[in-house]
Design a protein around this nucleic acid. Sequence first.
DNA 1: ATCTGAATTGGCCGGCCGGTCAACCTCGAA
DNA 2: TTCGAGGTTGACCGGCCGGCCAATTCAGAT
Lengths: 220, 220
Amino acid sequence: MTSPHPSNANPPSTASSSPRSPEERSGDATRERILDAAENVFAKQGFHGTSLRDLAEAAGVTRSLIHHHFGSKEGLWIAVADRLFETYRAWQSSILREGAFGIEGFEESIRQFFLFLESSPNFVRLRAWTNAAQSAETPHRDLALLGVDRLRELQACGEIRSDIDPASALIGLFNLVEHWFQARTTLENRLGETLPGNHEFLEDLVRILIRGIRPCDGET
Amino acid sequence: MTSPHPSNANPPSTASSSPRSPEERSGDATRERILDAAENVFAKQGFHGTSLRDLAEAAGVTRSLIHHHFGSKEGLWIAVADRLFETYRAWQSSILREGAFGIEGFEESIRQFFLFLESSPNFVRLRAWTNAAQSAETPHRDLALLGVDRLRELQACGEIRSDIDPASALIGLFNLVEHWFQARTTLENRLGETLPGNHEFLEDLVRILIRGIRPCDGET
DNA sequence: ATCTGAATTGGCCGGCCGGTCAACCTCGAA
DNA sequence: TTCGAGGTTGACCGGCCGGCCAATTCAGAT
């Protein structure tokens, strides 16, 4: 954003903490309000299932204002996706970089990723929409490949069985956790009370995956 | 001004531009043709991303004809989904009922399900859309619960470790396979040539899952 | 030959879509 | 006090949407 006067970058009214103030004329606050509302609506209805009028009503603003701040419906969608994905990227990066090494680090990654998705239903649903549309999406090759490298190191140390591709293990981890939340509604319909709770499933999943990728006794 | 005399205003009888096939006047054949085309378009673009005009053009018919045969856009969507889902149901049923017993039967189920999804990309994509929309969908509780029972029997025989919920194992199986195909495009962007091929991933997946759910030596 | 009913068509409708525009409001800088 | 820039609004546009309908075609029964 090009600002003609960057020297004085104070918030306009210092004590505007009241959330429902009708004199909220701050562009930044309005942007945030639109983003928050759009995130919920887009996550629920997808891009094509959502109209600009839906978004304007949810945010309590006029259509023109959305266009003023985000240029177009697609611009708003991208802004929503970028914000959600940036949160995710930061999370994943911290998991991969500061996570403990060894097989315990792998287990911890599963739990962390599970808890993150559990706390971000909008992210899960937006991912489901982009999955269905098979949209290009930002690559993040670096982080994914970093994860594969981590597993490859573990494999070299004999912590992971040698007869599987580390990429398969990584994909399995991410797919299992992500699809658990994406398919939860469908699974509830099909399994009813037989469906495990979130934490029960997480523990079973960790048990299965950890034993599944470890070498057998005496195996290198 | 619109002419209020529709009786003989503009006779379009002379020289119809597109010569339709003379024998193609069978209602059933047309229905099938519309269903086939709609399956491809819906799978690619989803319900809200597809217009009746898209569908008519893809099927080579007029909009009115679609309305005549299926009542509405939603009726066509449901017809497409029903046809795909019925194929899937028959498959799953045969897998669960005639599949070999024992842990080999479980392994065989993974492979069968994998091959089925590999051969039905439209089914995979339609499932992705319904997942994202979290639409109700037909329950099929019976088949899912039958699978859980199968695994519970195996667990009682000591073929499956006792410290996991059979439902978790079943969900893991289905989620892994289905999400592999649903997320394949995204994974290609992220992993590039590091992404395993279909069959390599299937074999790794079987290895991980089978060892992951088996009891340890000496364990009941 | 005639009738009949389903298959099929083009044209039309009201309504919603995303987007644009000129104006208005508000407030801080000059 | 003036001024201007950004925030905000409502009205408006052309176009596409799903759906509806009267008219036409045609295969097969009578």
